[in-house]
Amino acid sequence: MNQIGQPEEEPGMSFLDHLEELRWHLIRAVLAVVIAATIAFFLKSFIFDVILFGPSKGNFWSYNMLCRLSNFFGVDGGFCFEEFPFTIQSRTMGGQFSAHIWTSITAGFIIAFPFIMYEFWKFVAPAMHESERKHAKGFIFVTSILFFIGVIFGYYVVTPLSINFLGKYKVSEIVLNEFDLSDYIGLVRTTVIASGLIFELPILIYFLTKIGLVTPKFLITYRKYALVIVLILSAVITPPDIVSQIIVAVPILILYEVSIIISKLIFKREIEIKS
């Protein structure tokens, strides 16, 4: 820290120097993804047979739990079954190899996520005050935990609900459900990654509040609109029953409320610093 309380920076750091620094952080992050993806590439049987194709089997853990939950509430959610009425196939010459490559990259990104956040933190930390760095020491841990919780939620909740609905949906008994491998994996991959990123909402609100783009009043004012959006989203990605919609909507609404609390704390701290 210098005498006027500004964060210290390395002397002589120009805009191009910062770009060079960013480039090396990105290179290290990408290298971490590549290494993790390479490991995932050689774990093909486990990743595909156990993880990816797990939600396509009737004995998957989530379906058993949702079946019990549906029975408890006395509703028919369509979760009690032995197998799905669809098959997964590859219709292109390089379809399976392409799926193997992209799945490995996705797995590499998920595994290397904490290191990616570490490199991001190392890049932005020098621009922060010492007090800010002190309060944000748990950034990597909290960000990674939220991301992994989101990935687990997407895999064990959102993905099974989506596959259960889309896998059984028919416009006519004449039409057979024979899904392409890339479509199935794309659904699982997109759902899992999107859920992981959605669970980063409190972190996003933290930074947006610090730079003044979001205030607690703004979040509270538009809470009702956020509720409507979440309910619509949960209705779109889940079967048309209230139990499934609540299962998806509740965690996201909790994240929104946590984001409001975080915004209040940061907003109050920023006012105290300025005063």
Results as ranks from 00 to 15, higher is better:
Gln3Arg: 11
Gly5Asp: 13
Glu8Arg: 09
Leu16Pro: 09
Glu20Leu: 12
Leu22Gly: 10
Leu26Asp: 12
Arg28Val: 02
Leu31Glu: 06
Leu31Asp: 00
Ile35His: 02
Leu43Lys: 12
Phe46Pro: 11
Ile47Gln: 01
Asp49Leu: 12
Asp49Arg: 03
Phe53Trp: 10
Lys57Pro: 01
Leu66Glu: 02
Arg68Tyr: 06
Asn71Cys: 07
Phe73Asp: 02
Phe73Leu: 02
Phe73Lys: 10
Gly77Tyr: 09
Gly78Tyr: 00
Phe84Ser: 13
Thr87Leu: 07
Thr92Pro: 02
Phe97Trp: 13
Phe97Lys: 04
Ala99Arg: 00
Pro114Asp: 10
Tyr118Pro: 08
Trp121Gly: 03
Phe123Thr: 14
Val124Ala: 04
Met128Ala: 09
Glu132Val: 13
Glu132Leu: 14
Ala136Phe: 08
Lys137Gly: 07
Ile145Leu: 08
Phe148Gly: 00
Phe153Met: 01
Gly154Pro: 07
Tyr156Met: 01
Tyr156Glu: 02
Leu161Gln: 03
Ile185Lys: 03
Ile185Cys: 06
Thr191Tyr: 10
Ile193Met: 08
Phe199His: 03
Ile211Lys: 14
Leu213Tyr: 15
Thr215Phe: 11
Leu219Asn: 04
Ile229Gly: 02
Leu231Pro: 03
Ile232Met: 08
Thr238Ile: 02
Pro239Asn: 03
Pro240Asp: 01
Ile246Pro: 06
Arg269Cys: 10
Ile271Leu: 15
Ser275Gly: 15
